Amino acid sequence: MSNRALQRKHRVGYRTVTAALNSAWPEPRKAPPKRGSRLDPYRAIIDGWLRGDLDAPRKQRHTAKRIFDRLLDEHHAIEVSYWMVREYVAIRRREIRIEAGREPPNTFIPQEHLPGREAEVDFGEVAIRLRGELVTCTLFSL
């Protein structure tokens, strides 16, 4: 079939037919550009407050509500919502503590046990109901 006939049959444009003839698989879609957040201008300020809290006593540290209130009072950040601040502080507070060496990062060490090489064994007693009677049996788990 000609390109024009394929366009009419499948009700698509010239470029779509050309792309389909070049490759049976469609090209991956381009990711849209990341747009900034309304919180972006205030991230450095919030990070400074959270870094200052590292040496502050527990009761004197900034809460997300306190940070939001300070942004409104000191920087007139009316375009920022409490929820934006709360989510940012929840993530960033831990990251700052890890950067400062005050908290260990989450680590995950995958374990791989080859069959027949290593095993864990447990041995104990278990109570079961056998023919209506409560019986204590020994359990071996490998």
Results as ranks from 00 to 15, higher is better:
Pro32Gln: 14
Phe123Asn: 05
Gly36Val: 05
Pro110Gly: 08
Thr138Val: 09
Arg4Ser: 14
Asp55Ile: 12
Thr136Ser: 07
Glu103Leu: 15
Ser2Glu: 06
Arg35Cys: 08
Arg58Ala: 14
Ser23Pro: 00
Ala127Lys: 12
Lys34Pro: 06
Pro26Gln: 03
Asp73Tyr: 03
Gln111Phe: 04
Arg97Ser: 07
Ala44Glu: 12
Leu72Ala: 07
Gly101Ser: 04
Pro110Thr: 01
Leu6Ala: 14
Val126Ser: 08
Arg38Phe: 07
Tyr14Glu: 08
Glu133Ala: 12
Arg94His: 04
Leu71Phe: 04
Val80Gln: 01
Arg29Phe: 02
Ala31Asn: 09
Ser23Val: 00
Ile109Glu: 08
Arg92Ile: 02
Gln7Thr: 03
Gly101Ile: 03
Gln7Lys: 14
Leu50Asn: 01
Glu118Lys: 12
His76Gly: 06
Arg70His: 09
Lys65Asn: 05
Lys65Ile: 09
Glu99Asp: 15
Ile78Ala: 15
Arg35His: 11
Leu21His: 01
Glu103Thr: 07
Thr16Phe: 05
Gly48Tyr: 02
Arg70Gly: 01
Glu112Asp: 04
Gln7Ser: 04
Ser141Cys: 10
Gln60Lys: 14
Arg29Asp: 07
Ala90Tyr: 06
Met84Cys: 08
Val85Phe: 00
His75Pro: 00
Tyr88Ser: 04
Leu6Arg: 10
Arg4Ile: 10
Asp122Ser: 15
Thr18Ala: 14
Gln111Arg: 13
Arg8Asn: 10
Leu134Lys: 13
Gly116Tyr: 01
Lys9His: 14
Glu27Lys: 12
Ser23Gln: 09
Arg97Pro: 00
Ser81Thr: 15
Asp122Phe: 12
Val85Leu: 02
Gly116Met: 01
Arg38Leu: 10
Tyr88Gln: 02
Ala44Val: 11
Ala127Thr: 13
Ala56Asp: 02
His75Glu: 09
His76Tyr: 07
Ala77Ile: 01
Ile98Tyr: 06
Leu142Lys: 08
Trp25Lys: 10
Met1Ala: 15
Cys137Tyr: 06
Arg102Thr: 05
Thr18Arg: 12
Cys137Ile: 11
Pro115Asp: 06
Arg38Ile: 02
Thr138Asn: 11
Arg86Asp: 05
Met84Arg: 06
Pro28Val: 11
Arg11Phe: 04
Ala44Arg: 13
Asp69Gly: 05
Arg29Met: 05
Gly13Tyr: 05
Ile109Lys: 10
His76Ala: 13
Glu103His: 07
Arg117Gln: 12
Pro32Trp: 07
Pro32Cys: 03
His10Ser: 11
Asn22Phe: 03
Arg8Glu: 12
Glu95Tyr: 06
Asp40Gln: 06
Trp49Leu: 12
Arg102Ile: 02
